[in-house]
Simulated scan of single mutants.
Amino acid sequence: MKRFLVAGALASTLLLAGCASGTGGLTTGSVDSISAVEPGMDSGMVTAEGLKTNADGSVASDASGSVSTDVSRSVIKTASVSVAVDHPLEVAPELATIAANAGGYVQDSSNSPASEYQSESIYVTLRIPADKFDAATAEVLALGTFVSSSQSESDVTLQVTDVDARIASLTTSVDRLTALMANATNTADLLAAESALAQRQAELDSLVSQRDYLSNQVDLATLSVSVIATTDAAPTSQSFWDGLSQGWSALVNAGSVFVVALGFLLPWLAILAVIAFAALVIIWLSIRASRRRHESSTPEE
């Protein structure tokens, strides 16, 4: 009789854990698609606006009849800004200081030193706590001349709520399967429990990783900063003299390129001239020798 009780409890646990891996969730590979509800758990869900709903889709309310809005919103913030300064490479320490003062850090950075063909510039990605994100962005923009900016927000409240609910359900399933393994009386029951436990544990670990990633993205906003040289910033307006100056600069640059190209080709042109002259001399000598032979072979009248 005890054997049948253990087998029945194992089957009940597998059916109960089916709600943690049903279709439409964040995990793949479930044992079944039974949408069982864990005893003691609410069958409602949370809408994108943070409102809790009943199973029939109506908005849930408390005993006083007021709508329940106790679920906080989870929002991922990202922004990209570009500023122009005289010496971009000198701004990198200031960006690191802004991130550190806000409780964040520099995720990655790259820089391009000045060369003959481009001005210096830096590109830095900062991770800033969400509650200090706007203030840190304002500090970054104050470092130089504004060039451009963009910002976006992604509401992941439903994802976070769904992941948390599935983690709670799978944790309960794992605990019950562990208890069943401890009470198994034969090898068949033990192997079945071990197989189910391994699958549930893998799904649980995956969900925990997803929750940690979402939490990190929500808690720390991402700010991508591009700092360019002031000379590379697009002018707000141009006059006739600005166009004339740019045209003259382009002409001078074209002349410089022509001079450089001529200097590069000149040695090769000299060698080709010597070769051509030698070839002409050889051809002339050959023609002259041919004429002499022809004259000597012609009989005199």
Rank of each mutant, 00 (worst) to 15 (best):
L89W: 02
I128Y: 00
L223T: 07
S21G: 14
T13P: 07
F4E: 14
G29N: 11
K77D: 09
V91A: 12
A233H: 07
S154C: 10
V257L: 15
T28E: 14
S68C: 13
V274T: 10
F277S: 12
V124E: 11
S12Q: 11
D108T: 14
S215D: 15
P299T: 11
Q107A: 10
K77N: 05
S110I: 11
Q199E: 14
L190N: 02
K132E: 08
I98H: 00
A188V: 04
N54F: 03
A202P: 01
A130F: 08
V259G: 10
Q107K: 04
S290T: 12
D175S: 14
L5D: 05
V227T: 09
S58L: 05
V274A: 13
I98T: 00
V67H: 06
A234S: 11
T53W: 06
T27N: 12
G18F: 08
N186V: 09
S149Y: 03
A63Y: 03
E120W: 04
S68M: 14
I122S: 02
A234P: 05
F264L: 06
S68R: 09
L191C: 02
A63N: 03
V75Q: 00
S112P: 03
F264N: 01
F133I: 01
T137K: 00
A165T: 12
V259A: 15
A202Q: 13
G144T: 01
D32S: 15
L223P: 08
Q107P: 03
P235H: 02
S297F: 06
L14V: 14
T69Q: 13
L143V: 07
V37E: 08
P113K: 07
G40N: 10
S72M: 08
L141A: 09
I122H: 04
D131F: 00
V31H: 08
T23F: 10
V160L: 03
T145A: 01
A84L: 09
K2E: 15
S150K: 02
S109C: 02
M181R: 00
Q159K: 08
A102M: 03
Q238A: 15
A278I: 00
T125G: 07
W241C: 08
L15P: 04
R211Y: 04
L265T: 13
Q107T: 06
V85G: 01
C19N: 05
R166Y: 07
S74L: 01
Y105F: 13
G18R: 08
I167E: 06
I282V: 10
D219E: 15
A278T: 00
F264V: 07
A250K: 13
D164F: 02
P88W: 05
Y123V: 01
S150R: 02
E94A: 11
G104W: 05
L197S: 11
G144C: 01
A165H: 08
D242V: 14
L126G: 00
